[in-house]
Amino acid sequence: MRAFALRLFPVLVWFVPIAAIAEDLPNFVGKPVGDLRAFASSQNITLREEAFLSSAPPDYVVWHVPGEGGAVGFDRVMRAGVSLGAEAPNLLGAPLPDAVAQLEAMGLPYASVPVAEPGFAGEVVRQTPKPLEKFDASRLVVFLAVSEGGIAMPALAGRRLDHALAALRQAGLTGAVEHPPSSHWAANSYEVEKGCGSDIERTAIVSHSTPPQGSFSGFEQPVMLQYDIRTRRINPRGCIFRGPQIE
């Protein structure tokens, strides 16, 4: 009997504080994990954390086992799920309906705004938070900037007019025109006139565009290319013809 008591004593001594914890285990769900860590440390409990993505704020407890009022086992171990926050999916380039569907499926709040920026109409061209960035979905929303459709005007100055027009139309800017209007130069911006002594080369070169380089142009928006005709002598050779000189 005495031996049994002696064996039981350390068990009892060890058990008493556990029983006290088991009855008083508070609820840490929705609280900073720091609170749970401090509690665990003060109660000599081993805390095993599992971090995962969630719409809860980063570093907040999402669940713990045992739960509120539960008992810590003999191993004195608690497990807790800790939020890493949400992770913004990469929505760049996605059509808005697809992006919205994805966000809703993930339970993430969002708001969108059309922007006059290059891209296909309805395509997400910018997002905040950035792709794969962790964030607190309880306080932040995913703002989506959605293109109204259009391109950024490329550098056209110095290019041949017909090439520039072709490039713009190929990009979808069907309203691109030359200025002053000249179907001749728009169709073929290069010609050579044979002459005595040398040939004369004429090239229609874009001087600037409206909208200018770098700015946004919607697909329906008119684009105007201004051009100069540049001339120069080529192929010099001897010539006996004395006619009017071309400068």
Partner: peptide
């Protein structure tokens, strides 16, 4: 989801970002 106060905070901070101000919000 976040309250309007939170949304405006986020948008306000995006707009006042010293390096890359963003008015989308």
């Amino acid at each position: 989801g976040p309250s309007f106060l939170d949304r405006y905070y986020q948008a306000y901070l995006m707009a006042s970002d010293p390096e890359a101000p963003n008015m989308d919000g």
